[in-house]
Design a protein around this nucleic acid. Structure first.
Lengths: 212, 212
DNA sequence: CAAATATACTGAACAGTGTTTATTTTCCAA
DNA sequence: TTGGAAAATAAACACTGTTCAGTATATTTG
């Protein structure tokens, strides 16, 4: 007769080992994405580096999208760390300025991670029939509450926090993504070298304009 | 002795045929990208539809990136048509408003083309060691000159046309691309259905803010 | 401890991708 | 008609994500 297999201690250890394996997979994927670029991240390359067969990856992740979702989680964690360290001011509008510049800095320091977080489709495929994007939510929420505070204290022109939040985000993301995907330089004499300076200038001007 | 091969008429016909083949390739690629999505566009699928072998494509295009660059050219041509039809006002600021809304409309009517034009990396790889992005240039130039006119007539707050142009473009593109790549819905209760309305609202508010 | 079974892992294959090369077919000029 | 240039292709190469049958390892049971 088939009955209780494995005692509780072993089950716990197996779960721990499963989690550890997933960690190893995600860690090596993050390393590869940062050091060699997103395009070099393949199941086979990951398998090579952790010294397992490619098929083994599929015992820990349903597909590559799910794996990349966990890599994205990691990327958002490093962004959160940046924010926590750099967004310190007590004045809400100054905090908004710090946040915007921290966002731009992150995109420059970790362009491949930024790509995975905000541009690449793959990790979002892991969200089908899920209603929340847990990875992006904390960052969005942080900006949203900051925006709400700015509205409450009447330091910005926005009336609606959602529109204010999305507007600031879209403005920054628009610049970053056009630049990352090579659409800015090579149009009418805007070179790649001058882009960071122009972006900073534009963001400053935008913040000046939304200021109440 | 080896001497003048092919008379002039035949050479001309051959060149015409070469151009016609490229047309067929690009046309079918555009059709596929619109009807089946960018991901379904492969050299083999294109070859199937034009009834040639995959290797033949490489007699007319160095690689897929070069092919996609020509598809992008086509996409920009349809955007230009939209602009020409919809951006008609004599007042420069109203023309700016028309342009912004035409841009958003285009992204909704042709999301896959928008992707190829402004997000996907591949077509830009065709530009290595080229200093100008001929595809994007006319659209950028149009907005730039419009912006310059707005600045000259003091109907916008911008002082620098480059920053003004890039700012408006980045703002619109930021919204469109975040939405297209599924980053907007599924964050803190912003659903996919309400996004177009929010985007219109945000653009209107932005234009109000840049107005002098 | 040995046998039975549940779990972990992998080699090999499948179906795709972009691209190259050797070979064949088609076309044109002498 | 024949020699040679040009055009087209079949087949292969080196990748990709993914699946599955079969092997190896762990763990529980008799």
């Amino acid at each position: 007769m088939h009955c209780k297999l494995y005692n509780v201690g072993i089950i716990e250890r197996k779960e721990r080992e499963k989690a550890e394996m997933r960690r190893r997979i995600v860690d090596v994927a993050v390393k590869m994405i940062v050091e060699e670029g997103y395009e070099k991240v393949s199941i086979r390359n990951i398998a090579d580096k952790i010294e397992y067969s490619p098929a083994t990856i599929y015992l820990y992740y349903k597909d590559k999208d799910q794996l990349l979702y966990d890599v994205q989680t990691e990327a958002f964690a490093t962004l959160a760390k940046d924010f926590l360290q750099k967004v310190t001011h007590t004045d809400p509008f100054k905090r908004l300025e710090q946040l915007a510049h921290a966002y731009l800095d992150f995109s420059r320091n970790h362009p491949e991670l930024y790509d995975l977080m905000f541009i690449i489709k793959a990790p979002m495929n892991a969200l089908v029939e899920k209603e929340k994007w847990e990875n992006g939510d904390p960052a969005y929420d942080g900006l949203y509450h900051l925006m709400q505070e700015c509205i409450d204290k009447k330091v910005v022109k926005f009336k609606d926090a959602t529109i204010g939040t999305l507007s600031v985000w879209a403005f920054a993301h628009g610049f970053v993504s056009l630049h990352l995907r090579g659409r800015c330089s090579k149009v009418s004499g805007v070179s790649d070298e001058e882009m960071p300076a122009i972006m900073n200038e534009a963001i400053k001007e935008y913040l000046r304009m939304i200021k109440a």
